[in-house]
C-alpha cells in the first residue's frame, strides 16, 4: 500500500514536471502585432533541399472585424500560400489566394495544412538563420517579423507537444 502511494506520488510529480516543461517549451511568443492582429509561432524548418522550404505561423485576430491574409513577402525567396488537400487518396498542394482571419479567431499555418512554400530560394535556409517576412492584409495592415530557422527535429518535437490551438 505504502509502495503504491509512493509510486502514485512519484508518477504525479513526474507528470507535473513534464507538463511544466512542456508548457514552457511551447509558450506562445508574439513576434509581431498591429491593431487587433498578432502573429505567433513563426518558424521555418531548415531546408533539406537547397531550393525548397516552408514557413509556418499563426495570426490571431482579437478584433470585431474579419481580415484576410493576401500576400507574404520575404527576401528569402518567392513565397506562395498553399494548402494541402487530400482527395481520392491523393494529397496535393493547392494555391490559396486569400486566407480569412475571422473576428476573435485565427488563421493557423502548420504542417499538413496551410503553409507558405518558398520556391527559388536565394540560398538554402540553414539552422540558426533568421529570415524577414512581411504579411499584407486586406485591411491594409502590414505585419513584419523575423522568422527563426529551426531543425526539422525541433519542428516535429513541437508538433508532438501539440502547439496551443489559440496562442
Amino acid at each position: 500500500m505504502k509502495t503504491t502511494n509512493c509510486l502514485t506520488l512519484l508518477i504525479s510529480t513526474l507528470a507535473a514536471l513534464s507538463c511544466a516543461s512542456g508548457e514552457r517549451a511551447s509558450a506562445p511568443v508574439a513576434v509581431a502585432s498591429s491593431g487587433d492582429l498578432t502573429v505567433y509561432h513563426a518558424y521555418a524548418p531548415a531546408s533539406p533541399a537547397p531550393d525548397v522550404a516552408s514557413l509556418y505561423f499563426t495570426v490571431v485576430n482579437d478584433g470585431e472585424a474579419a481580415d484576410t491574409l493576401l500576400t507574404i513577402t520575404s527576401p528569402a525567396g518567392e513565397a506562395t500560400l498553399h494548402n494541402v488537400v487530400t482527395q481520392d487518396g491523393i494529397a496535393r498542394m493547392t494555391p490559396v489566394e486569400a486566407l480569412p482571419i475571422p473576428p476573435h479567431g485565427l488563421a493557423r499555418l502548420a504542417p499538413g495544412g496551410y503553409h507558405v512554400m518558398f520556391s527559388n530560394l536565394v540560398r538554402p535556409l540553414n539552422l540558426g538563420d533568421t529570415i524577414a517576412v512581411e504579411l499584407a492584409l486586406a485591411s491594409g495592415t502590414m505585419l513584419r517579423f523575423p522568422v527563426p530557422v529551426l531543425s526539422y527535429t525541433e519542428v516535429v518535437k513541437r508538433l508532438d507537444q501539440g502547439e496551443p490551438s489559440r496562442r
Binding site: 524548418p45 494529397a91 499538413g112 526539422y152
Partner: peptide, 17 residues
C-alpha cells in the same frame, strides 16, 4: 519527392527522430 515542402519532410523527420 524532394520538392515537397510539407508532408514528405515532416514524415521523414518524424521517423528519423
Amino acid at each position: 519527392f524532394t520538392y515537397c515542402p510539407d508532408i514528405c519532410p515532416v514524415h521523414m523527420a518524424n521517423l528519423a527522430a
